[in-house]
């Protein structure tokens, strides 16, 4: 995937005239941006996930939003399930020990 698609999307996001031109005649805007056939197909599809994946190369496909499991020992005791009643991420009752 070339940089042309990313650059075009930045232009569309920041230039209302270009966005109007795109809505009126997308093919002309694709020509001017130098998009490949594959890039044009993605844009024509209007599929937000396909488009996001196409410009989400590399690490961005693996991004959540941050956060994740709490750091070991932070707040929630015995998180990793060593010793004492094993711990899982939810479900199953624990048998009423502690707390």
């Amino acid at each position: 995937m070339s940089d042309n698609l990313s650059e075009l999307l930045v232009d569309l996001a920041s230039n209302a005239d270009l966005m109007a031109a795109f809505q009126a005649d997308p093919e002309r805007v694709f020509d001017e941006a130098g998009l490949s056939g594959e890039e044009r197909a993605v844009m024509r599809s209007r599929d937000p996930r396909l488009l996001a994946n196409t410009v989400g190369a590399g690490h961005t496909l693996m991004l959540g939003h941050g956060g994740g499991k709490p750091a070991p020992g932070k707040g929630g005791k015995k998180k990793s399930g060593r010793k004492k009643s094993g711990r899982k991420s939810g479900g199953k009752k624990k048998g009423g020990k502690k707390r």
Partner: peptide, 26 residues
């Protein structure tokens, strides 16, 4: 930067060319 797509990376580079992705940490 750690953003969700390469278009946003391109936008950041336009604002400031001294930009580095943190994506390789993942």
């Amino acid at each position: 930067h750690l953003v969700s797509n390469s278009a946003t990376e391109a936008w950041i580079r336009r604002l400031n060319p001294n930009a580095t992705s943190l994506g390789d940490c993942l």
